Simulated scan of single mutants.
Amino acid sequence: MAIQMNKRLVEEFFARVSKNDLAGAFAMIRDDVAWWSAGGEHLPFSGVKNRSEFIEAMNAVGAIFPKGLKLVPTGLVAEDDRVAVELAGHAVTAEGRNYENLYHSVITFRDGKIVAVKEYHDTLYAKIVLVDGQR
């Protein structure tokens, strides 16, 4: 039963992000979360973030994508307290550039909230579009 609930929570989390309901999405994250995103020093929102750092990074992403970032799950696999999710991302930058990226995240739950995330995406593409301002 917990596996199905965790899958529903993942869908709900990304639906809230996609609707720009960040407060609702943030409410689904534990205070002791460790959110890791690929990209190293090339992307300001990469590395391991605690809850407040993650919220700050998401708010910065909101400035890049004033109309929001749509993240649509295209596949889910769950086991124990983890859900692996494939996502198709779409947004338009403040400068009007389209941003289309694919993501794969492994999300771990504790007590019905997100406690850990490992997020992979095309970091070169993200750097080119978001940091270098090309495309």
Score class of each variant (00 low, 15 high):
residue 73 P to T: 08
residue 99 Y to T: 00
residue 110 R to E: 15
residue 63 A to G: 09
residue 85 V to F: 13
residue 16 R to Y: 05
residue 25 A to P: 08
residue 36 W to M: 09
residue 86 E to L: 15
residue 116 A to R: 14
residue 121 H to T: 15
residue 128 I to S: 00
residue 21 D to Q: 10
residue 113 K to F: 07
residue 25 A to K: 13
residue 36 W to R: 08
residue 71 L to Q: 10
residue 53 E to I: 03
residue 112 G to K: 03
residue 23 A to M: 04
residue 72 V to C: 08
residue 122 D to M: 14
residue 105 S to F: 14
residue 91 A to W: 08
residue 34 A to D: 09
residue 27 A to S: 11
residue 68 G to H: 14
residue 78 A to R: 04
residue 59 N to M: 13
residue 117 V to S: 03
residue 1 M to D: 09
residue 112 G to M: 11
residue 47 G to L: 11
residue 70 K to A: 12
residue 10 V to N: 10
residue 83 V to C: 12
residue 16 R to D: 05
residue 101 N to L: 01
residue 105 S to E: 15
residue 74 T to E: 12
residue 37 S to V: 14
residue 95 E to R: 11
residue 120 Y to M: 15
residue 74 T to R: 14
residue 93 T to F: 06
residue 74 T to Y: 11
residue 71 L to D: 03
residue 25 A to S: 14
residue 17 V to S: 07
residue 122 D to S: 14
residue 96 G to N: 02
residue 80 D to E: 11
residue 70 K to C: 08
residue 122 D to I: 09
residue 102 L to Y: 08
residue 36 W to Q: 09
residue 26 F to S: 01
residue 34 A to F: 06
residue 116 A to E: 15
residue 26 F to T: 02
residue 94 A to S: 13
residue 66 P to R: 04
residue 100 E to F: 08
residue 86 E to W: 14
residue 43 L to C: 09
residue 99 Y to P: 00
residue 59 N to L: 14
residue 103 Y to N: 07
residue 107 I to C: 07
residue 87 L to H: 05
residue 90 H to C: 10
residue 7 K to D: 03
residue 123 T to E: 15
residue 82 R to K: 13
residue 61 V to Y: 02
